[in-house]
């Protein structure tokens, strides 16, 4: 072997020894890459303690890997360094996600407040509308009840009054009709009230005064005699009843009117005395309200 060959052999031997250690373990390559990523990323600012810990572990791994006599120790330390770098990275990502979550919570709370405010306003409006409707309904119901009670009372009073004077109470399309026999009120062939007739009207006065409906007094005769006479007599009798009610019953004049009907609309047979007696009558009509 020449001196040059000897020298080359030594270089080769040293190179071989060096290259034996230069076979960098995969764990160390991964650890270096992970540390590079984490030390240049957000974790360097958000988690500097963990990044520094990863660096220490990486340095230990580097040192162990170049101690050729124990490569497994180097690989293990590189593995730990890799995990520590990943740990720092995960903590950093979690911190950033946590900040996003906090911001999201704030935005969500604001939107929930806005939404609830809208819901509350709608509910309040609906409650107010419901309360108003209930109030109206209650008032209407109360008014109906009162009207019904008043009508019943008026009917009872009218019936009581009619019972005293033997009158008749009916309903027709015009309204409530009180029919009074003419013989109870007037002398034969005359338009003025008898004393008994005045007394017979008295029980009706209070009832008619308190009833809100307008009053029409219609006078009727039988068909005996001339029509003109009967017409005038029926008008006189209707007027007499009306005036008596205005004067003694304090019924407002604008609430009451009178109409002579002559022998129209007979309710009995004019050929019989009994029928003619029925036809001689006065009808007090409590008119239905007109809209």
């Amino acid at each position: 072997m020449t001196p040059i060959s000897k020298k080359l052999s030594w270089v080769a031997a040293v190179g071989l020894l060096a290259s034996g250690c230069a076979e960098t373990p995969k764990e160390l390559v991964d650890a270096r890459a992970a540390y590079k990523r984490v030390s240049t990323g957000p974790a360097a600012k958000t988690n500097p303690v963990q990044v520094a810990d990863a660096k220490r572990s990486l340095d230990q791994a580097e040192e162990a890997c170049f101690s050729c006599w124990d490569t497994s120790a180097g690989r293990d330390k590189a593995y730990v360094a890799l995990r520590k770098a990943e740990y720092a990275d995960a903590l950093s990502r979690n911190a950033m996600a946590g900040k996003d979550l906090e911001a999201g919570d704030v935005q969500l709370a604001s939107l929930q407040k806005e939404y609830l405010s809208g819901v509350n306003a709608r509910v309040a409006a609906e409650n107010a509308a419901a309360a108003a409707a209930l109030g109206t309904l209650g008032k209407t119901q109360a008014q109906l009840d009162a009207d019904r009670a008043a009508a019943a009372a008026a009917q009872a009073r009218a019936q009581a009054a009619l019972d005293k004077i033997r009158g008749k109470l009916t309903q027709d399309e015009r309204g409530t009709v009180i029919t009074l026999p003419g013989a109870l009120l007037f002398p034969t062939g005359k338009g003025n009230l008898t004393a008994g007739g005045k007394r017979n009207l008295d029980p009706l006065m209070e009832f008619l005064r308190t009833d809100p409906r307008k009053i029409l007094i219609e006078g009727f005769t039988d068909s005996t005699g001339k029509a003109a006479f009967n017409q005038k007599l029926s008008q006189d009798r209707a007027d007499t009843v009306m005036n008596d009610m205005i004067k003694y019953g304090n019924i407002p004049a604008d609430k009451i009117s009178a109409q002579g009907m002559g022998s129209q609309n007979p309710i009995g047979d004019n050929k019989t005395a009994e029928g003619r007696q029925l036809n001689r009558r006065v009808e007090i009509i409590l008119l239905k309200p007109t809209n």
Partner: peptide, 19 residues
């Protein structure tokens, strides 16, 4: 050394779980 790996893996597992 294996315990060190176990602890490093466990800490990483916790961080990944939290994330």
């Amino acid at each position: 050394r294996t315990l060190a790996k176990a602890e490093a893996d466990a800490k990483l597992a916790g961080a990944l779980g939290a994330e």
